[in-house]
Amino acid sequence: MSRLLMFLLLVGLMATTTLASASSGQDQPDFQGPPPDPASLYAENCASCHGERGEGRVGPAFVLLDDHSDDEIYHTIAEGRPERGMPAWEARLTPEEISALVGYLRTLAAQAQPPAEEEPAPAHAAGADLRLVLTLQEDQVVAHASLRDEQGQPMAGEKVAFALRTTLGGKLNLGTFVTDEEGVATLRYPAGEVPSLTLEASYPPEAGDPIRAVASIDLPAGQEIPPVATGLFSPNPPPIAILLLGLVVGGVWITYVWVAFQLLRILRVR
């Protein structure tokens, strides 16, 4: 009984925090509301580039955050780094929210594994085993590359490069991803409307001759294109337009045939 009560209490608590964070997300930046919740702010605005735990994706990981003062970090968020693709946030976040984010980034950086002193040398890769599994989740292809060392132990914190095999032996680099505690690096790729996808994982990314794993997945036929609004865009061309075009182009081609006939007459003169 007490367990059930405890559970209900927990659920209620979670619901209120979720609601609170949801409402703070919808608020205007200048609204004097409850104190900003940096975690949800981070998840909404930063995680898509810097990773859910600050491990870095398009944007860098927060491993070197200790080298910078709070002020510097604040200004980086507020003004962005346009030359490296990071937008300025001061128009969209209040100063309080940015300050809260600075503190949150510090906690993220503290939680993150400090960069391993003994970086795995390429020789490390010799006995490693890389496997790639592709699954389809809704409209995304999820690629799990699991990396194990020669003892079969998962290798965490390693970088695995993903690439898309394109036509005629080409390759499109999709970026490098870091393996988690279970030694699995995960990539999500939109399935699109292609009949199949072939992805390749390689480790270590910098090596000249990395170990590779290749996997393919057949995709269901692409979704049907939704009908376009009517108006100028009619699904079927007006018959009169086809008729006119056919008459004009057909007339030209009939003339060509007539010219060919004249050539035949030249040939037949004896």
Binding site: W258, I266, V269
Partner: peptide, 28 residues
Amino acid sequence: ALGWRGMPDQHRSLERAMSVMAVLIIPI
């Protein structure tokens, strides 16, 4: 050369084809 020997018939066919093509090619 399509067996061209400069015969009047051949000239006529060629001239006809050329004049039609010359008119046709402008709108195209």
